[in-house]
Design a protein around this nucleic acid. Structure first.
Lengths: 284, 301
DNA sequence: GAATGTGTGTCTATAAT
DNA sequence: GTTTAT
DNA sequence: ATAATAGACACACATT
């Protein structure tokens, strides 16, 4: 599955090698802006792009396997179009939070949530108040710009107007300007070039946390609490090895303070984890 | 619930803002902190007026200047605007064109839904196309302009009940925001990562731990089901693997201890060797033995 | 967290004078 | 050391 | 000889 997130993880986000997808709006020609449809977001996800001038686009070093420099510049405006029905399903199966997270994580400065079918809020598998709250949360908690739209036609109109304004804001006149420098008539700044964001490397701590959470009952807070004391598998194993009796192993983590203010992990999970890390032979 | 509501004179008229009692302990201490959100109700007549001013380039107040003024007073807080009754305005204005009794109807809607509404004649340049359509486009223009230049969101409502609901929802969101933000900052990001399976159930005696152990191996990047199975098959418990590492003599030996474990592959011919490989072997070794929690497993060196 | 409901387990106080 | 009642 | 129990209360997990 290729989507924004995976593109980012593979380090190819916004690189010219990213396959081109059908533009929802026609290209404005050289120097104009377009909304590129990113693949795989079932609900439409658009990224404002502009072709980079040749001069600002050095050729990649020959014979390198590294991703070439971007030939396009992401303007930092990204629109996630979401119909009410889709939003509804996304909330139910948990995809909603994930999508918001990725949108915030993809690094663009102006994420926009385009909520379509604002009038068709009823007769869905979720109460109206619930959906309203979800949209408000998207705006207030996640800090996204939320645009409500009655239907596809309004959405298209919105994107059209948006494109026109972007053209006026980041037009050819500001092409030679250096990135980040304020424009003449306003506080607008050109977004910094977003080229290649390297995939985030896994650390021992992170993997250890994920491993702890493989046992039912161990959640983020619990894992974090354990990590607080034994931040690495080696240190935990060493602590178990230092125990004199099997009982001590079982109770080693029992009094680990978790979450809010210092709630015990408890003997149950402590015993399970001790079994996991202290069983000499094959596990049951 | 330990919250209260008060109607007081605000720096910005018709605005809602939120304060939270922070500070650890002091009772008397009115160390209230303003939440970084402001909700401002914009009277329909004012909104229309500003939108008109923006269309014609008068020097009077525009939506943008209004927003700038408000944001100046609220010192960098996130501003959200609310307008009530715009759709009804469109409808009546359209109707008034057909019936040629425009001013009267306008005055009806404005005084009926707003306090002290006054008619506002509009001058338009050029076309005679449906005026309500043009107005909608112009409003859209103004909203986008506001979005791009001020980052201000405008919520258009049609009834005062909706405004009440919005205030309620907004209040709830603002109240919960700090709590949720803290969880995002501290908690692990992979909680919501794409495909996250929650913990495997394990009964009191320890059945299911084998599955846990296998899934622990799968927590590494780029590890397939078959690879994890192969490793777990060779070392059926974490302790056995750790002991094997302890027995190894050289760093190289320990690092490559798992490299040659055979792994079942797809039916077809595969160019790559059907082994765990030295890279994954090394990552697992580092994970199990390194004393440094911040060590990067993907770094080459 | 969307909202609400279900089950595990910890936690806190427990009598009578 | 294993069983009992509060 | 030793200690328990109910209930509130959270939290992890499962549903309309």
């Amino acid at each position: 599955m290729l989507d924004l997130y995976h593109h980012r993880r593979e380090g190819w986000l916004f690189s010219p090698s990213t396959p081109s997808y059908k533009n929802v709006l026609p290209d404005q020609g050289a120097g104009g802006h377009c909304w590129r449809r990113e693949p795989e977001t079932v609900a439409l996800c658009l990224v404002a792009l502009r072709a980079l001038p040749e001069a600002a686009c050095p050729l990649p070093p020959p014979g390198q396997l590294q991703p070439p420099a971007p030939r396009e510049l992401a303007l930092g405006y990204v629109v996630e179009r979401k119909r009410m029905a889709d939003l509804c399903s996304s909330i139910i199966d948990g995809r909603f939070r994930e999508q918001k997270f990725r949108l915030h994580q993809c690094g663009l400065q102006h994420p926009i949530y385009l909520v379509e079918d604002s009038g068709t809020i009823q007769h869905l598998s979720l109460p109206e108040s619930t959906l309203q709250q979800a949209v408000i949360n998207t705006q207030v908690v996640d800090g996204f710009f939320v645009k409500r739209t009655r239907d596809v036609r309004e959405s298209a109109a919105y994107l059209t107007v948006m494109t026109r304004h972007l053209d006026r804001l980041f037009g050819v006149s500001s092409r030679e300007r250096s990135w980040g420098e304020p424009r003449e008539s306003g506080t607008e700044t050109l977004p910094p070039p977003i080229s290649v964001i390297p995939p985030q490397a896994q650390t021992v701590r992170e993997v250890f946390a994920r491993q702890l959470m493989q046992v039912s009952g161990v959640s983020g807070d619990k894992a974090a609490a354990i990590l607080e004391r034994y931040s690495t598998p080696a240190s935990l194993l060493a602590a178990y090895a230092a125990c004199l009796s099997p009982q001590d192993k079982e109770m080693l983590l029992s009094n680990t303070k978790c979450g809010k203010l210092q709630r015990n992990l408890g003997p149950t999970l402590s015993k399970t984890l001790a079994q996991l890390y202290c069983t000499p032979g094959p596990l049951p | 619930m330990d919250c209260s509501c008060a109607i007081e004179s605000q720096a910005v008229p018709c605005s809602i803002s939120w304060k939270r009692q922070v500070g650890p302990s002091q009772v008397d201490d009115d160390s209230w902190v303003e939440e970084p959100n402001v909700l401002v109700l914009l009277r329909l007549e004012d909104f229309v007026s500003m939108e008109v001013q923006g269309t014609a380039d008068c020097s009077e107040e525009t939506l943008r200047s209004f927003a700038a003024r408000v944001m100046e007073k609220t010192a960098g807080r996130t501003l959200a605007l609310v307008v009530v009754g715009l759709e009804k305005y469109f409808r009546l204005e359209f109707l008034s064109h057909k019936l040629q009794s425009r001013k009267k109807l306008q005055s009806v809607v404005l005084s009926g839904s707003q306090a002290g509404g006054q008619g506002k004649p509009r001058k338009r340049k050029g076309k005679e196309a449906p005026i309500s359509e043009l107005s909608r486009v112009e409003v859209e223009e103004a909203l986008v302009d506001l979005q791009l230049h001020a980052g201000v969101q405008v919520r258009v409502l049609e009834s005062w009940k909706e405004l009440g609901d919005l205030a309620s929802s907004f209040t709830k969101a603002v109240a919960e925001a700090p709590f949720k933000r803290e969880r995002e900052k501290k908690g692990f990001s992979f909680y919501l990562e794409s495909e996250w399976c929650r913990g495997a159930k394990v009964d009191r005696s320890g059945k299911g731990l084998a599955q846990v152990w296998k899934r622990q191996i799968q927590q590494f990047n780029r590890v397939s089901l078959e690879m994890a199975g192969a490793v777990v098959s060779k070392y059926p418990s974490p302790l056995l693997l750790a002991q094997a590492y302890r027995k190894g003599s050289s760093e190289q030996e320990r690092q490559n201890m798992l490299a040659d474990i055979p792994v079942r592959r797809g039916d077809g011919v595969t160019a790559t060797t059907r082994r765990i490989g030295s890279e994954l072997s090394r990552r697992i070794y580092l994970q199990m033995t390194s004393p440094n929690p911040d060590l990067s497993l993907d770094a080459n060196g």
